[in-house]
């Protein structure tokens, strides 16, 4: 069977579900960040598959993916700075412990 758009979209959706599960079930902030990277990459795969199989003469999907990667880099930098501050203040990275705003 020829590998087509369906195969890539299926893989993308499976990766998205795995990443979403990871964001929901992990307790550590860093593990959630890793899962968010999985989410970003499943979206990249879907964008490139659409670009390749539906509009191969254009590069709109490529440009979208470049923007997503750039924003993922910015997000990682800011998130890791926040992680450092959280760890310095709380000595822990578990999201259940970060409840200062509740009081």
């Amino acid at each position: 069977m020829e590998i087509g758009l369906y195969h890539y979209l299926t893989l993308s959706v499976i990766l998205f579900a795995i990443g979403m599960t990871g964001v929901l079930i992990r307790r550590s902030v860093l593990s959630m960040l890793l899962s968010i990277e999985i989410l970003f990459n499943s979206i990249n795969l879907a964008a490139l598959a659409f670009n390749r199989f539906l509009y191969p003469a254009t590069v709109t999907g490529h440009v979208f993916v470049i923007f997503i990667i750039t924003i993922a880099a910015a997000e990682a930098a800011v998130a890791l700075a926040i992680v450092m501050i959280v760890y310095k203040n709380f000595r822990s990275l578990e999201v259940e412990g970060l409840t200062s705003l509740k009081r």
Binding site: F16, I25, R27
Partner: peptide, 21 residues
């Protein structure tokens, strides 16, 4: 390592997976 949603979240993700597929 896992919080209390560790059984609920995969079900939710599988539901979303089936829906999008």
């Amino acid at each position: 390592q896992f919080n209390s949603q560790k059984f609920l979240a995969p079900i939710l993700a599988l539901g979303l997976l089936g829906l999008i597929l």
